[in-house]
Design a protein around this nucleic acid. Sequence first.
DNA 1: CTGGGTCAGAGGACCACAATACTAG
DNA 2: AACTAGTATTGTGGTCCTCTGACCC
Length: 415
Amino acid sequence: MGYICDFCGEQRSIVYCRSDAASLCLSCDRHVHSANALSRRHSRTLLCERCNSQPAFVRCIEEKISLCQNCDWTGHGGSTTTSSHKKETINCYSGCPSSEGLSTMWPFVLDLPSTGNSTCEQGLSLMCLNETSEMNSWGPPGNSSRQDASLTVEVNDANNVDKSSILIGSSSVPELNSPSQKLDQPSGSADLTLPKLLCPGTDDLGFCEDDSLYEDFNMDEVDLNLENYEELFGVALSHSEQLFENGGIDSLFGKMDTSGADSHCQGAVIAEGSVGLANAVQPTYSNAASADSIMSSKTEPILCFTGKQAHSSLSFSGLTGESSAGDYQDCGASPTFLMGEPPWCPPGPESSLPSTSRSSAVMRYREKKKNRKFDKRVRYASRKARADVRQRVKGRFVKAGEAYDYDPISETRSF
DNA sequence: CTGGGTCAGAGGACCACAATACTAG
DNA sequence: AACTAGTATTGTGGTCCTCTGACCC
């Protein structure tokens, strides 16, 4: 499905909302996302024109088609002829942009139907394109006017390095080598490549038809990693502290959205979420990395962009990521950066940080971790939408028309 | 060292009902 | 085989309750 708008069921769906896990036509997109301030913050992007079920992240200029990570890989990864296709990253957006705004952002979509006037259009004329730039750090260069977020700056720099976001092929897809994979494939794990991970047993398709493959992926593991953070790296907290300070991790994790089934298949596309970035800065990892170094890599989400181009395989440990990769993609940052510490990144001066800032960083980290919700995964956005507006008594749903003590819409109580 | 009291946090139950899945004709 | 009607099951979020472990005396 996904070809028809999930909301009206009539128009062809154009955009994909990760938060709602819904494919929408532009009209319904504006309608739905102009409902309130929260919905306006939903990050949307074009819908993959191949599988019609996943958010597109790249557009093949030569084929003139928008593709999700999976379809991009299946379509371009295997063939040498197609892998050289020029591609352009696709921005995501939020708010209620005008059709002009969308045309600006997606110039290749020339026939965008008129989206009419939205109630929030004026208020959002600033449109969250700026916001998008922050969220979608792999967007075209120059989108981001803010320079205070190190992550965004570095990423945009990466894009600058990467020839204005024109990407050549998917050949940079890193090899994955997690312990679990090693278990499954004890031999030749070093050669484990994405297609194998994507759709075992299929060489050419793999359009996310086997969701069970990623069924067990969840953020719990990531959370677990973070939970052991201090125990494992009490001394090496400073990397993350800096990210906390700069809003780096916060901007990444804080915008994570584990809801929606849209993350299917994206888990296997780990580190491909920002191919441009991966091309520009792909850390080198040894497949023979020790468990310690692997642990160190995955638990120190360090951004250390030096402009080097390194292309090799990398190892993930425990980053099993339905939510992981998908969410990383959502915020535009490759898990490559989050999970890995480039070997060329020298031990920074962070170790000399004052203990007060460290403790404060730890406190902030704990606070943010406490406020995060990784495990909740909404399978049916429609049901969630209904639950969000239902009246309750002491948290319990009440029959329609009966007295209630909590109304999510009006935030009022009937008695 | 042991037992009792207190506190905080985690996890599960509960509710109504639309959406979805399943079965029978 | 395809369709329709009826029935059963699922999933959604906020609040309350119970359980467990930590801590103190």
